[in-house]
Design a binder for these strands. Structure first.
Lengths: 248, 248
DNA sequence: GTCGGTACACTGGTCTGACCAGTAGCCTGC
DNA sequence: GCAGGCTACTGGTCAGACCAGTGTACCGAC
């Protein structure tokens, strides 16, 4: 006979549980409203601070949103990847993860997204992708910031074509963290115009590969481009971590 | 000239921000303690309820833990994938993310982990992997639960050989969520013994591929195995989402 | 009739102050 | 030296208060 350690159950936790259960089970649908804090307080038979702490937890999980003054009460939100984004971001920022690992991960995600996009793209997708590329081309003459924005948009279109929200979110997060880590180094990059032209040409190749449903080609282009652009910021002794990915 | 929508900044949010920043920047390391609530209250110049709501948010994000009575104050926790797991699980339950997407993601992660493992493995890694396989072999006669545990351990060893914490964590999370989604269906699986023998043989192949540094082979084996084992639970019309990954 | 403004009732955000159960560490008394 | 209790804290919870903000119903001007 073995016993398990016990942990005291806080009042606010049981409030969270009940509301969470109601949302997960679909009893409370997105857009619907919770009773006001004062009303919940009597329903649960606890003080307002307890209710408020419970609502804070649910709000941090992006399950509800409350606005002061709204007589309809806190709103139940639709599930969104925002919470996933936050927790992934936090984890990625935790020191165990260096630029090499992030880049590795990004090559994996980006490569897979390109592979899937080349296979799953519809005609509409191709149109959208073409427009995204046009935006990049125009961005060249509007300065680096504009070009960069268009570049990000291009990548997001590809991720979306892959039809996998996990891929979209992860890629967005990892891209963000990578940029945060090297933004200071990017500031001093010289001859940006030629850099932009290089990238533009690369994206044209990617576009072609996806148009001709060449998944392997698109994936390789994506990974190679990431390596070419960012490997210089990775300590030389860690670069062998990245090269295996280029071979597949 | 365009204007942006403004959102009022709550007091507790600014408290969260500051503490979060201190943790992310490494100013507060895991194991260290925050001042007590009453102390924080004077430092931030806000009421205790505000402090408490901030701490609740941080606690929901698995960044801190507080125990009543502990004179040392709330403890800063090491980054853990628990929060990531929770938010991914929620998203999966809300079925913006279905089994197909999860499996797709898992094939990507697992395949990449195998690829990297085959390239980066040291002799020690191979020894460890061999032992993990032995444990699986012995597990066959100790029942499904035991075998399953050894199987998970095998996968974790491979993920660790790939030397990328992001890969390790993501895979762990996705594997967990996938299992939760189909656990009821797995319960009724018949002739488990033959199933175990099949898996054992498959893992032997993987082991061989990694031993001989055949990254592409190991990756393909991993992805194919996932497809073979789980595709039956994916609606037939969604299976084409998975097959492109097998070709690479 | 419609429209603009206003008053009201209610919301969530915050603060204060209080009490309780629990913990760690000191400090006895043996 | 050590078991047992004492104490000064901790976090968890509650009650009550005030404020700024919001939606709505009402109301008067046109």
């Amino acid at each position: 006979m073995r016993f398990e350690p016990v942990a005291p159950v806080r009042a606010y936790e049981r409030v969270v549980e009940q509301i969470e259960q109601a949302v997960i089970s679909g009893e409370l649908k997105p857009g619907e409203r919770l009773p006001s804090e004062r009303e919940l307080m009597t329903q649960f038979g606890v003080g307002r601070s307890t209710i408020r702490e419970a609502l804070r937890v649910l709000q941090a999980a992006e399950m509800i949103r409350s606005r002061p003054g709204d007589p309809r009460g806190p709103e139940v939100l639709a599930a969104s990847p925002v919470a996933l984004h936050r927790s992934m971001h936090r984890l990625a920022r935790a020191d165990h993860v260096g630029l090499a690992e992030l880049l590795q991960f990004r090559m994996i995600l980006d490569g897979s997204a390109h592979l899937l996009a080349a296979d799953l793209r519809t005609d509409d997708d191709l149109t959208g992708l073409g427009e995204a590329w046009e935006a990049m081309r125009e961005g060249v003459s509007h300065g680096y910031a504009e070009f960069s924005r268009a570049d990000v948009a291009f990548h997001e279109v590809i991720a979306r074509i892959s039809r996998n929200p996990l891929l979209v979110v992860s890629e967005e997060v990892v891209r963000g963290v990578v940029l945060e880590l090297i933004e200071d180094k990017l500031e001093h990059a010289s001859n940006r115009t030629s850099l932009m032209r290089t990238w533009l040409a690369h994206h044209a190749e990617v576009l072609d590969a996806i148009r001709s449903a060449d998944g392997a080609g698109a994936a390789h282009l994506a990974k190679q481009a990431l390596y070419d652009n960012y490997a210089e910021y990775v300590p030389a002794e860690q670069r062998p971590l990245l090269t295996p990915l280029l071979r597949l």
